[in-house]
Amino acid sequence: MKPVHQNNALDNHHTSVIGMSECGKTSVVKKEIIKPTDQVVIFDPYKDYDGELAQRTVRGYSSLRDFAAAVMAGRKTQQGFKIAWQPTAKTTNKEFDQFCRVAWVNGNGRHPKPLKIILEEVAEHSNSAGKADGYHGEILRVGRKFGLHSINIFQAGQEVSKTIFRQCKYAYVMMQLLDSDAEYLQVKMGIPAEEIKALEKLEYIKKVNKDWQKGKIRW
């Protein structure tokens, strides 16, 4: 199966969220990116999205087959949903690719709602810092034509594919563990390393194309 109704007029909404452990990456997704009426699928191997997301109950499935069926049923409607795959065993690159395949085949350039794809732990499931492969690569490179909006979450820029930096129009840069991490992001994203180094927990720099501004998550 493939996504349907290619629409070259659709905008790019791919997003990256980058920061060290416990800096607030998942909080950015929950507070800044996802809305109650969105249709959302979540790669959630550590159950970070149990409970509610954007005031909606997250339906979690341990079975990939059941998850895929729920997503396909949801996409036949115009209603918002929050559906997570929460496998019980440790995931490998193969399982990550299978999740991305489910998201990929549910793309539809004529659907009134985009499909937002939350991808936790991207670095753990990346083969290299080179070109993104598999269905993740397909989503990044051409997914916007089918209404697919990926949200790529990871700790260090050096550990993920360069395709993410090239294809994500939006980025939230958060507190980094090492100065070298901030310096790497300056090269890749054009944000001054000193601005990144100064970030504290729950603070972020939001970048849209070449423009950026600071913000902070408030609960």
Rank of each mutant, 00 (worst) to 15 (best):
residue 1 M to V: 09
residue 2 K to G: 09
residue 3 P to K: 04
residue 7 N to Q: 06
residue 8 N to P: 11
residue 10 L to Y: 03
residue 12 N to E: 07
residue 14 H to A: 14
residue 16 S to H: 04
residue 20 M to V: 09
residue 20 M to D: 13
residue 20 M to F: 11
residue 22 E to V: 08
residue 23 C to W: 01
residue 24 G to N: 03
residue 24 G to V: 00
residue 28 V to C: 14
residue 30 K to S: 14
residue 33 I to P: 01
residue 34 I to C: 12
residue 35 K to F: 14
residue 36 P to F: 10
residue 41 V to H: 03
residue 41 V to M: 05
residue 41 V to E: 01
residue 42 I to K: 03
residue 43 F to W: 07
residue 44 D to Q: 11
residue 44 D to K: 08
residue 44 D to I: 07
residue 46 Y to S: 11
residue 49 Y to P: 05
residue 50 D to Q: 14
residue 51 G to S: 13
residue 52 E to R: 12
residue 53 L to M: 12
residue 53 L to S: 08
residue 54 A to S: 15
residue 55 Q to G: 09
residue 56 R to T: 08
residue 58 V to Q: 02
residue 58 V to E: 01
residue 59 R to C: 05
residue 59 R to G: 00
residue 61 Y to M: 04
residue 63 S to E: 04
residue 64 L to Q: 03
residue 64 L to T: 03
residue 65 R to K: 12
residue 67 F to C: 04
residue 69 A to Q: 14
residue 70 A to Y: 05
residue 73 A to I: 01
residue 76 K to S: 13
residue 77 T to C: 11
residue 80 G to N: 08
residue 80 G to K: 04
residue 82 K to L: 06
residue 86 Q to I: 01
residue 87 P to D: 03
residue 89 A to Y: 09
residue 89 A to Q: 10
residue 90 K to H: 09
residue 90 K to L: 12
residue 92 T to F: 09
residue 92 T to N: 12
residue 95 E to D: 12
residue 96 F to I: 04
residue 97 D to C: 12
residue 100 C to Q: 02
residue 100 C to H: 01
residue 102 V to C: 06
residue 103 A to D: 10
residue 104 W to E: 06
residue 105 V to L: 15
residue 107 G to F: 10
residue 108 N to D: 15
residue 109 G to R: 04
residue 109 G to P: 09
residue 112 P to F: 08
residue 112 P to L: 13
residue 115 L to P: 06
residue 116 K to L: 14
residue 117 I to A: 15
residue 117 I to N: 10
residue 119 L to E: 02
residue 121 E to N: 15
residue 121 E to T: 14
residue 121 E to V: 13
residue 123 A to F: 11
residue 123 A to H: 07
residue 124 E to N: 15
residue 128 S to G: 15
residue 129 A to T: 05
residue 129 A to M: 07
residue 132 A to F: 07
residue 133 D to W: 03
residue 134 G to V: 10
residue 137 G to P: 05
residue 138 E to D: 09
residue 138 E to N: 09
residue 142 V to W: 00
residue 145 K to I: 00
residue 145 K to V: 00
residue 149 H to N: 15
residue 150 S to T: 15
residue 150 S to E: 11
residue 150 S to A: 15
residue 151 I to T: 01
residue 153 I to D: 00
residue 154 F to E: 04
residue 156 A to E: 14
residue 157 G to K: 10
residue 159 E to I: 07
residue 169 K to E: 05
residue 169 K to L: 14
residue 170 Y to T: 08
residue 171 A to S: 15
residue 173 V to E: 00
residue 174 M to D: 00
residue 174 M to K: 00
residue 175 M to V: 05
residue 177 L to N: 15
residue 180 S to A: 14
residue 181 D to I: 07
residue 182 A to H: 04
residue 184 Y to T: 10
residue 184 Y to R: 07
residue 184 Y to L: 14
residue 187 V to W: 08
residue 190 G to T: 11
residue 194 E to S: 09
residue 195 E to M: 11
residue 197 K to H: 04
residue 200 E to N: 13
residue 202 L to N: 05
residue 202 L to T: 05
residue 203 E to M: 11
residue 203 E to K: 06
residue 204 Y to T: 05
residue 204 Y to G: 08
residue 205 I to M: 02
residue 210 K to N: 07
residue 213 Q to W: 00
residue 214 K to L: 07
residue 215 G to H: 03
residue 219 W to P: 06
